[in-house]
């Protein structure tokens, strides 16, 4: 399971990087979203093994629990990535309103002398 997820993470990273490198602003933002998905999954695999124990709720009275630390970190990361995505989206939206383009090449700030 861990290996499968890790390979999936690699695939997600590839897709994310490819999207980030494109010229379209929206694709770049989607790239960051995919990248954070990848990061969340990666964090998950870094714990004490997947599916080894019950959910980290002590009320379950289980013998063992899955690793709670990555879960806490991911929870934080999810909310932050939401904030970043929202901000980037609005930034793109404002940029388009102001400049009339979402092409990053056209948005270049200065010309070669």
């Amino acid at each position: 399971m861990e290996t499968l997820i890790t390979v999936l993470v690699g695939l997600l990273v590839t897709v994310a990087v490819y999207l980030l490198l494109s010229r379209n602003l929206i694709r770049v933002i989607l790239g960051t979203a995919v990248l954070s998905h990848a990061a969340h999954l990666l964090l998950m695999t870094m714990g004490n093994g997947l599916k080894k124990g019950s959910a980290p709720l002590l009320g379950e009275n289980a013998n063992s629990y899955v690793d709670a630390l990555p879960q806490a970190l991911i929870l934080t990361a999810i909310v932050i990535s939401f904030a970043v995505t929202a901000f980037l989206l609005v930034l793109a939206y404002r940029t388009y309103k102001k400049t009339g383009t979402d092409d990053l090449h056209a948005l270049r700030g200065f010309n070669d002398e």
């Binding site: 709720l57 002590l58 009320g59 909310v79």
Partner: peptide
């Protein structure tokens, strides 16, 4: 605090 849920 004791079950799934919380501030977020």
């Amino acid at each position: 605090h004791n079950n799934p849920g919380g501030g977020f």
